Amino acid sequence: MIQTDEKVLVEQPSVKNTEYSESATTFDYSSIVKSDHFKKMCKEKTVFTVSYTIFYMLYSLLLPYLALSTNLLNGKIIGEISWAWIYAISMIPMSFIVCSIYLKKADYFDKEAKKILENQEV
């Protein structure tokens, strides 16, 4: 993808990638940026990314805070296993869940971006 002043050239994959081919598609980037669909997608992406980042950071940083500043995690559950162990081990499935949700949303945003480009083809 090559960006000029107001247009973006997207070159189709080919065997020779040394020069621009005639199959290169031109997009009017300034009209894409101004479109409601693009603005909506950017807002959704920002809300998703910021909210999941805040959640993940809070969940991760809560363990050291609770372990060092309070006695909440000192209680025993089964034998010598405390709440601190349960909380720490819960980070593994939580990480996988957050990653899988992110992958699904990334696929969704890729499809939305493709729709936007298809609607803007000259």
Rank of each mutant, 00 (worst) to 15 (best):
C99Q: 08
F96Y: 02
S95F: 00
S100M: 15
A88C: 05
Q3G: 07
D36S: 06
K34N: 08
D5P: 13
S60L: 09
K40D: 14
T46R: 12
V8G: 04
D110Y: 15
S60G: 01
V50G: 08
S30N: 11
I77Y: 01
N74S: 13
N119V: 07
F96N: 02
L68R: 05
G79N: 15
T26M: 09
Y20V: 14
G75I: 09
M41F: 08
V15N: 06
E19G: 06
M91V: 02
A106E: 07
A67N: 06
W83Q: 15
S23E: 11
S100L: 13
K39T: 03
D28P: 00
S51G: 05
L73E: 03
V98Y: 11
I116W: 00
Y29A: 06
L63Y: 09
E6S: 15
M94V: 07
A88D: 13
N119A: 14
Y52P: 03
L9Q: 06
D5K: 05
W83D: 07
M1Y: 11
T46N: 11
E11M: 14
M91F: 03
L61D: 15
L62A: 02
E121T: 01
K43G: 00
I81M: 03
S21V: 05
I78V: 10
K76H: 13
S95Q: 00
I116N: 03
V98H: 00
L103Y: 09
S31I: 01
L58R: 01
S35C: 06
D107R: 15
T49S: 12
A84R: 08
I81P: 05
L68N: 03
K115Q: 05
E44L: 11
N119E: 08
S35P: 01
V15D: 13
F109Y: 01
A106I: 14
I101H: 09
T70E: 00
K115Y: 00
E112F: 13
A67H: 02
N71P: 09
F38H: 13
A113S: 12
E6R: 12
S14P: 14
Y87R: 01
V98I: 06
S31W: 04
S35Y: 07
F109L: 10
K111M: 08
E112I: 06
K34C: 10
V47W: 06
S90W: 05
I92K: 02
A67M: 10
F27H: 08
Y65W: 01
L73G: 13
V15Y: 13
T53V: 06
S95A: 04
T53G: 01
S100C: 10
K104I: 12
I97Q: 03
Y102I: 05
Y59Q: 00
S82K: 04
N74C: 05
F96A: 12
T26K: 12
L117F: 07
S90K: 00
Y102G: 01
F96P: 02
L63M: 03
M94W: 00
A84I: 10
Q120P: 01
I77K: 05
L58I: 02
P13L: 02
V10Y: 09
E44S: 04
A88E: 13
V50Q: 07
D5M: 11
Y52I: 03
I86Q: 12
D28V: 02
T49I: 08
Y20H: 15
Y56C: 12
K34W: 12
L72A: 10
N17K: 14
T18H: 10
G79F: 01
